[in-house]
Amino acid sequence: MTVAPEKNTRKSERAERAARPGRPGRGRGVLVALGYFFIPLAVLVVLWQIATTVAPSPFFPPPVDIAENLVKLLFGGDAVFTEVFYNDFLATVGRMLAGYAIGAAWGIVVGTAMGLSQGSRETVTPIVEFLRSIPATATLPLFIILLGGGDDMRIIFIAYGVSWFVLINTASGVGSIHRTMLDLGKVFKISPARRLFSIVLPAASPKIFAGLRIASTAALLLAIVSEFILASNGIGFQLIQAQGRFQLLNMWSWMLALAILGLLINFVLDAVENRVLSWHKLSRQKI
């Protein structure tokens, strides 16, 4: 009982140091990652700028113009933000977030139920496999007929499409929890609610998070697609408008807005994951 601990103290100290945020080692890591991200991007933008200056084309406006136009679209006017910002940009973000939240909650609830009971997994899985193999975008006309062309339809459509990713991942995460971990809850007579929230969901959280990540991309995509038809506002609506009026600069600006939005969502998810799942990353590093 005396030999092993000493050797391991050192190892665990190292792991602990790595666990503490804001240490030099980690700060440098972030800088390097940002470098890998921004340098190729900057090179691309510069090349594009040069190319479009040398050989102007109405289809490919220079990046500086695209960015300037986007700022003009969203900011300024009488207040800080333009009407377009509220009417279109925020409207899309709102629909996306609402649909994402509902779809994720539904996916986690149903996925957990499926993962916990082999019986329900066996009966529900064929249905799930069938439904989710219908491309979500293909169901939009049906949603419109059933629910009309309003915001609630769009939100439910997004929720529907998003829920599969969360559901499948949650079911697989919960279903693959090791029997010992579940026995632990039973042996120590942990209440069912605590078993769910303190054993099952944390144990499945790495998988659930993977699902939430894919789902976030899908949510943005579905929000835009849902605004292509029967919409009177939103980024998707603006894109279609710009296309109809041949306003290529606007189209590019909205695409830029979507790219920024996507990156922002990823950044937020990264931050949450780093906080919630740090144990998972660190425990894997050790192996």
Binding site: T180, M181, D183, K186, F188, I190, W279
Partner: peptide, 29 residues
Amino acid sequence: VPDGMAMVFQDYSRSLLPWLSVERNVAFP
């Protein structure tokens, strides 16, 4: 499960909750 019974499992890596510190693992039951 009878009252007043505890169990130590063979598979320690699965029976401890990796998201809890040692102290909170011990306090868990």
